[in-house]
Design a protein around this nucleic acid. Structure first.
Lengths: 231, 231
DNA sequence: ATTACTAAGTTACGAGTAA
DNA sequence: TTTACTCGTAACTTAGTAA
């Protein structure tokens, strides 16, 4: 999305258009953006067309509400600024143990993955993955993890089949060390997959439906202290 | 500043140009911004001209560092997103008690202020202000307070002299309720002024040089829960 | 009051290219 | 390789208005 449209969207959000339908005129917005009424009007048309806002035209002014898509755009911007200024070194999830479709065993057995795991993680993972279901609302944390530095496992081809790249992070599940494995491509899933040197279900004494606390550790990155309000 | 320049500045910050001089070519940046090498080069020239970055040209690539001015631009953007998504309901300061220039007694005695204080705060302040010196690095918190909703005291004219508007916030100093009074116009000062119904120096048993903990409470605003990583 | 169209003016973009 | 200039064209802006 074009930077000037993001700016307009941000301005609408500051006026409360995420939570409420706000009543605002193109003239008022033009003053905030230091541009003309016509340009503000055109921006609103563009945002409407690309689905980031919904409008109801009044006889005076208009009612504007930011859509889910619009919210995503803004959250992504926010995420980038958080990366610049206040990178959290740890990300927490709470999840529920679920059964995989035995795909984990298949993938962890592939030579192309195994050799990279051994080289980059320092161990051969126990066959299979531990699957933990998280809240779909946690998508932003996953988006964040995709952006920050992790242990990259390269994509490769084996027997004409292409295996996608994944990114690994050191993580703790209920205080036991594991590796979180995230696919680099494709849609965000609400299932997190973990690998370990040992059979995690045993070492953690877990069965389906158990709640677990997950702590993902992020590699050192730039971070500038700023506005460190407590609580 | 133009939105596309802010975008470029953000990209440079993400590459680490706040902390370090980063080595980057206009071609690499053009790929990140999905634009041409020429445009990226022009953006860099513009950022250099307006003083938000400093450059050293290498024979290959260039060394780029974001200046104080550039950092201010980015911090301001960040502040706006924080306002949108994760407004802190409280802001903390640590400060040192200092003596004012007796101006506080003068201002609190002006009828135009007194009547508004009585009406909007519900009490007549004790003459004078308690002055607390804070770190100049806390400027961002003040900038933030200027933006959010507070108790507005209108500017007025009295005897041909114009008295500027101020904004009040409920605050606690060492757990005693007070009111923080911030001028709406003018430069940011590193002295915070507090008023109260009683003589604060007595009720707090304070003298110059004492360190105090200040907690400023912000009125309810929109806030969307997102990425609430703990710690 | 509004929104938003048209048309003309202005700015920005990027291919080509020099240094 | 780089950076960044020229210049034709594409995109954006806004005055003037209609609805």
């Amino acid at each position: 999305m074009k930077p000037y449209l993001i700016q307009m969207l941000k301005e609408l959000a500051l006026l409360g258009a995420i939570k409420n339908r706000i009543e605002v005129s193109s003239m008022e917005l033009s003053e905030k953006l230091l541009t003309s009424q016509q340009t503000a009007s055109r921006y609103l048309l563009e945002l409407d067309t690309n689905g980031t806002i919904e409008r109801e035209m009044g006889i005076k002014k208009q009612l504007i509400h930011i859509t889910k898509d619009g919210l995503d755009v803004l959250q992504n911007e926010f995420l980038e600024y958080k990366q610049i200024f206040a990178l959290p070194q740890r990300i927490y999830f709470i999840g529920t143990i679920v059964s995989g479709k035995k795909e984990g065993s298949y993938y962890t057995a592939i030579e192309g993955y195994q050799s990279q795991f051994k080289k980059k993680l320092g161990f051969n993972p126990y066959p299979g993955t531990l699957n933990v279901q998280i809240d779909t609302m946690e998508k932003n944390k996953l988006r964040f993890l995709r952006k920050v530095e992790g242990i990259e496992i390269e994509p490769f081809e084996d027997n004409k089949k292409i295996f996608g790249g994944v990114k690994c992070f050191h993580a703790c599940i209920n205080a036991i060390n594991t590796i979180l494995v995230l696919p680099l491509r494709g849609h965000y899933s609400n299932i997190l997959e973990f690998i370990s040197e040992s059979y995690l279900r045993d070492s953690l004494r877990l069965e389906d439906g158990n709640k677990v606390h997950i702590l993902v550790t992020i590699e050192d990155q730039l971070s500038c202290e700023v506005n460190n309000e407590k609580q």
